[in-house]
Design a protein around this nucleic acid. Structure first.
Length: 741
DNA sequence: TAAAATCCTG
DNA sequence: CAGGATTTTA
């Protein structure tokens, strides 16, 4: 996935698409090529929401929740949101601040009941509503809205009363308890009123409420006392029990959740607090009360989210919806022109857009319901461009004539290896960056020429949708919210400071969750301490100068004691290790930069801390086999791409093709390779590897170009060539342990 | 023939 | 990336 460094890089180049151009001539993108050769694993660009986890630290978390809701609640919720149509919740359309204001404003009067009521009401008419919609009848919908609005107002009033009562009763625990029970019942009632609600929905709603505790719950925290976790758990358990009980009685009772709820409300309003008072102790009642408060708050948050989603819907369906970038401009379709709704709309739109491509790519996990709904709720206007699985023409948005003056084109006569490309970064790519953050910056995406319009259309798979419709994942999240920056800075900081006392990171997974791998460097477990790392290879750029000064070889840094790597503890000192650790795997990957075909002797030499037996040996051999496989697959893929490219633009000069067959550090191919073998990007990829890659790419290209690939074993020759290009490993690799985190 | 490499699949 | 099947290599 995306390595933290990638993310970091993103932040520095907000506008560029993620994938850098292979060369000035836009080397082939990475579209999957089903028809070509062996089914190459469909490349997944840094597709997944790059910013999501970075947004976490206090960032627009609502985006997350909104998205999640979208997925989970599926059709129903969506519809509900639409029904709401941004009327009563209009104030919410403001930004975050407004959101809080609204919460405060309505906090007291809103309650879960209101929410439930709304939901139920909305869903009651859902079926027929859907039919109406199919007929395109908007009148009914409007009417419904009106009704809904009225009812909501009513509900608010009542609930306000209710709240007052509740507060009054807070001094009296018994009553409190009773209120809890009532609340519970209302809960259940409302649930049962939801005929269309699936079990998943229920779970989701419950979970969602709890999830968003910190959103809506903030109000609660201010107003009421905080809930302890245990209290909440208790509450949850009891609640589940109740639900089970209710399950049994489910059926005739409370068919209309509405009625049930209102009855409860009336009961409460009558002051009938004493029913079932013996059921639970005072403490339990209090817990319930607190839990209820919490839940109410959560519910408020939920509603807000939904309303926000409503706006998302509205703006998303507008053809002018903002592109994948977070845009803060006003939604043109803004209902009432909420002056400060733009930000949210933008954010939410983005969130949604990110999701759209997701479903299309894998097809799996397709939210059919949602798709259908999309169609349903889509205005008759311009069709949503959701080109699913549609093979994309390679040169789809490339200018027909690449020979025409192009900002990215190098000098016409430049050779393919010409490093003095006008648009190349100032520093030679192979040189360590002089910046203060050398290892953090992925070497791949060098800012080429931001002014070039074509830089937005990098050859990466991002080209799948060049239309005005939001481009899918690959493009990096443009302007990064502050939290992201903070995140990056933290990463930076933690990296530059080998902190022996850092708390242990979540075990393992680091291979898949790059942010962790980012941290892992600074974490103690990180195998050979920085000291060793810095000696591993001159190319291994590290700026921890002091670390470097410490003795390395054979010092205590490596030997001795258990070492935790990837969550597993293993002994490194003294003897050899039985199995292979993730650390070894990483090391092996780095070794691949030098040797593609290591002999078993080589392996034994460079993994002194591994106790080699037949199994381990073959496993490691297998590793390299896998590495090669990946390597060749990429080469072939890009080569084919280049061939296609060359074919599509007739008259293209031979030179152009040559230029495409470069593997520079700014190329997409490099990025992919680096990502695979050097995920944490802590290791500076040796230049030789790039040369080898280039050779391989060219070999593949020529083979394909000349049609040799029709021969079943056409790759063999290439393999032979490549296997001769192994270079000696740096001495540093003789050290036991894993070179870099 | 065993080891290694590759292919293929999950 | 692992496993199994198959092919190639020494």
């Amino acid at each position: 996935m995306d390595s933290p460094s990638d993310l970091f890089d993103d932040s520095s180049q907000p506008v560029r698409t993620f994938a850098p151009t292979l060369t000035s001539t836009d080397l082939p993108g990475v579209h999957p090529q089903p028809s070509i050769g062996r089914s190459a694993p469909s490349f997944r660009p840094p597709g997944f929401p790059l910013i999501h986890h970075l947004l976490q630290p206090g960032g627009p978390r609502r985006i997350l929740s909104v998205n999640r809701q979208r997925e989970d609640d599926g059709v129903t919720v969506r519809r509900v949101d639409e029904e709401m149509d941004g009327r009563e919740e209009r104030p919410i359309e403001g930004g975050e601040d407004n959101l809080l204001q609204v919460k405060k404003r309505h906090g007291a009067e809103w309650s879960e009941d209101a929410l439930k009521m709304k939901r139920m009401k909305l869903r009651d008419g859902e079926v027929e509503e859907r039919d109406k919609r199919r007929e395109g009848g908007r009148e009914g919908r409007r009417r419904e809205k009106e009704e809904l609005k009225e009812q909501l107002e009513e509900a608010r009033e009542r609930l306000q009363l209710l709240q007052e009562r509740v507060w009054k009763a807070f001094g009296e625990k018994h009553r409190e308890e009773e209120e809890e029970k009532k609340a519970k019942q209302r809960n259940e009632n409302s649930r049962e009123g939801d005929e269309e609600m699936t079990e998943e929905d229920e779970e989701d709603i419950t979970g969602g409420m709890y999830d968003e505790e910190d959103i809506g719950g903030q109000m609660e925290k201010e107003t009421f006392s905080l809930l302890s976790a245990s209290t909440f758990e208790d509450f949850h358990k009891q609640r589940e029990d109740r639900e089970r009980r209710m399950e049994r009685g489910r059926g005739g009772r409370l068919e209309g959740g509405m009625e049930g709820m209102w009855m409860d409300c009336r009961e409460l309003l009558r002051g009938d607090w004493n029913v079932g008072m013996e059921d639970e102790g005072e403490e339990g009642g209090q817990k319930f009360a607190q839990a209820l408060k919490l839940e109410l708050g959560s519910a408020v948050a939920r509603v807000i989210d939904r309303v926000l989603r409503l706006y998302t819907e509205m703006t998303d369906h507008a053809p002018s919806s903002p592109p994948a970038s977070i845009s803060f401009h006003q939604p043109d379709s803004g209902l009432d022109g909420g002056s400060d709704g733009g930000a949210w709309v933008g954010l939410l739109s983005r969130g949604r857009q990110e999701e759209a491509p997701g479903g299309k790519g894998d097809g799996a996990g397709g939210h059919d319901g949602e798709k259908q709904l999309q169609k349903l709720s889509l205005p008759p206007g311009p069709p949503l461009r959701s080109e699913p699985d549609q093979p994309i023409p390679l040169a789809i948005h490339r200018s027909p004539d690449t020979r025409k003056p192009h900002p990215l084109l190098g000098p016409p006569l430049s050779t393919h290896l010409n490093p003095s490309h006008p648009n190349l970064p100032l520093h030679h790519p192979s040189l360590p960056r002089p910046s203060a953050l050398p290892p953090l910056i992925p070497s791949a995406p060098q800012p080429k020429d931001p002014s070039s319009s074509s830089s937005f259309h990098t050859p990466s798979s991002s080209s799948s949708s060049s239309s005005s419709f939001p481009a899918p994942p690959p493009p990096p999240p443009p302007p990064l919210p502050l939290p992201l920056l903070h995140y990056s800075m933290q990463q930076l900081f933690s990296r530059s400071l080998p902190h022996p006392q850092l708390p242990h990171l979540p075990p393992s997974r680091k291979d898949y969750l790059s942010p962790d791998s980012f941290l892992e460097f600074s974490s103690p477990p990180s195998f050979p301490p920085l000291s060793l790392l810095s000696h591993l290879d001159p190319l291994l750029v590290r700026h921890g100068g002091r670390e470097r000064e410490r003795g390395v070889r054979g010092d205590g840094g490596v030997r001795g004691g258990g070492v935790v790597d990837g969550g597993e503890l293993y002994l490194t000192g003294g003897g050899s290790q039985e199995g292979l650790s993730p650390c070894h795997l990483k090391k092996a990957k780095l070794m691949f930069f030098y040797t593609r075909y290591p002999s078993s002797n080589t392996l034994k030499t460079y993994f002194p801390d591994v106790k080699f037996n037949r199994c381990v040996t073959s496993q490691m051999i297998k590793w390299f086999s896998n590495f090669r496989e990946f390597f060749y697959i990429q080469m072939e893929r890009f080569a084919r791409q280049a061939v296609r490219e060359a074919l599509t633009r007739e008259g293209a000069s031979r030179l152009g093709r040559d230029n495409q067959l470069r593997v520079g550090r700014e190329t997409e191919l490099y990025r992919i390779l680096n990502m695979h073998y050097n995920k944490s990007n802590v290791y500076q990829v040796p230049e030789r590897f790039l040369e080898v890659s280039e050779v391989a790419l060219r070999e593949f290209y020529s083979a394909i170009w000349t049609g040799r690939d029709s021969d079943p074993c056409w790759k063999k020759g290439i393999y032979k060539i490549i296997c001769k290009l192994d270079s000696p490993l740096p001495e540093a690799f003789r050290m036991p342990g894993c070179p870099v985190g």
